[in-house]
Design a protein around this nucleic acid. Structure first.
Lengths: 185, 185, 185, 185
DNA sequence: CATGAATGAGCGTTCATTCAT
DNA sequence: TATGAATGAACGCTCATTCAT
């Protein structure tokens, strides 16, 4: 059930990420966000104590969201290959469908003043726990988490970010999955 | 008539990327850049017609620079495995040594208003030509350029960006190289 | 929520015309206007969306004001000669007493980027209606509105603008009135 | 014979008045004037010690020019009526044909910081001498110079300034001449 | 004489934030 | 809670002018 105020907060967050997708971090001023959300600038300060806090909060929330959204589809009994397939496709699809949130998180995570607010390992811990389980079973090759992130997350994000320009044909995704399966299993 | 002082221009560029590394895109105002470069704000407009043009120009220049710097060390007669090793280490080391430029490019390429100014394939074409040669010889597995970028560039950039926080131990880099060799050859 | 302070707005307008009288259009910067009005520069943008809009708005308002102020003293039952006398003296006196507004309007109406905002015939229509009535009665000589403006308005404005330097002795005004009566009746 | 440098100075003056006609006094910056004249900003300071001096000088020059241009056509032996006709039409035509200079002078003469540089009576002295001669002969009615200016100059300038918008049909000019003849003779 | 480079000061405007209701 | 008004500071940029050649 959505209360009216929940709507207001939600509209503020959506206005912010939408503006940031369209105009970059510089284009998202408090006044513009408020106008786009249909509230007064002062209202934003009812929910957040500063713009930085707002950015950090939403950055945190959206950083976790993609992984949380993915978990249900990664049931425990998948084969290694199917797990990789499901994860890569799920992560990619989610990023594409939530383009605004994805672009927002990508921008925040490169920004020196914001990146410290979110530690990647806190976001994808659920996923990594499952991979660790696979590794203990000998299904996944042993590999540091950092390498895993570099190989599993970075390429998918890259493809998702290229989609707007290149369209990322299905083959590239399949090709990537195939290579990752070869590499990780 | 006074002649242009290209040392001044260089200081402007360095001030800009340095500020952006420390404070993010929002922190790099024209006034701050000028102060840090030891010039007047107006001087910046002798060399660039707008802040956006300045960002785009330097973004373009630094985007190419890392690949150009790499080319000499990628001699034609390397084995496939050595090529991957040289490229990954070279790319990583360059990114770490030129931390400011690397962070600047990373931020720009995520910014919707700037990313269009630089097309990745225009930057790394020299590298890709060599890989295509390897592919024709059957040394590299056939693979689309997009997939190649996703697998070769994105993970290394990821590790380079994590270095500040995690320190990226040598093992992770070796591990990555090993996996990439398996995958691409 | 705070309510708009129309006294503040009035001070802004007065500061603007006062500055423009003293220093010309170039001398009236937003910052100076704000300082003189005792408000923040940003406050001006609560009431006007740009400096140009502010100039145009006040130009429009003050252009109408002098004619509106005159109407009451031009009662319908004046003889032709008395009408001319009352109009000329009234228009002159108003211009002299509201020196700042008068100078402001004179400057704006000569400025190519502002003059289009105000059409003279929209300002003095009340006056011209009365003259048309006189003309229908055969009291005023038939004459195009343009000629009427040239003969009735332009000379009075000229005298008003000369006053600061020459002091415009009373005789000149009487002389003018006398000639105009001869000409128009 | 025009030397190259004379051309340069002339181009600067023309660029200035042209810009001021198109964009108003605020739109005519030294840089824009220089660009439009095809010279360097610094070159302007070879001829004038400051922008204010440039404005004042050209204001003075162009203020005199219209009256000087008129004198030849006002031969001594004209009848009073013909003199008025020749003067009004000549003054009007000159203002229309030299639209840029006319608009420039009109703007300068209303500007508090510039108007002091030019005294009207210094410009039209030649004309007024002739009128004084007519007055001594009893052809022109006795009248103060101020009133004369108000009646002869102001209305014509008014019509000239309206021309751009209203087109000032010939009739208005004839009508004005007729009235002025009635009044002054 | 003539120039493009260089500048400190100032431009019009918007910023993130707080005030008063 | 929610608001439009209000703001000092800062924004990107241009100004009139001077410098060095």
């Amino acid at each position: 059930m959505r209360t009216r105020d929940y709507d207001k907060l939600e509209r503020i967050k959506e206005a912010m990420v939408s503006l940031i997708l369209r105009e970059g971090m510089n284009g998202a001023s408090v006044a513009k966000i408020a106008r786009e959300a249909g509230v007064s600038p002062a209202t934003i300060y009812v929910y957040y104590s500063s713009k930085e806090e707002m950015l950090a909060d939403v950055f945190r929330e959206y950083s976790h969201a993609s992984f949380h959204a993915l978990l249900p589809s990664l049931s425990q009994d998948l084969s290694g290959a199917d797990f990789i397939d499901a994860f890569v496709r799920g992560f990619f699809d989610y990023s594409v469908q939530n383009e605004e949130a994805f672009s927002f998180v990508e921008q925040c995570s490169r920004c020196p003043t914001l990146s410290a607010y979110v530690r990647e390992e806190d976001c994808c811990c659920g996923i990594f726990e499952r991979i660790h389980a696979y590794q203990h079973q000998g299904i996944f090759r042993p590999m540091s988490d950092l390498t895993l992130s570099a190989l599993l997350l970075a390429p998918v994000r890259f493809l998702a970010s290229q989609r707007a320009e290149c369209g990322v044909p299905e083959p590239a995704l399949s090709e990537l999955i195939e290579q990752l399966q070869k590499m990780l299993l």
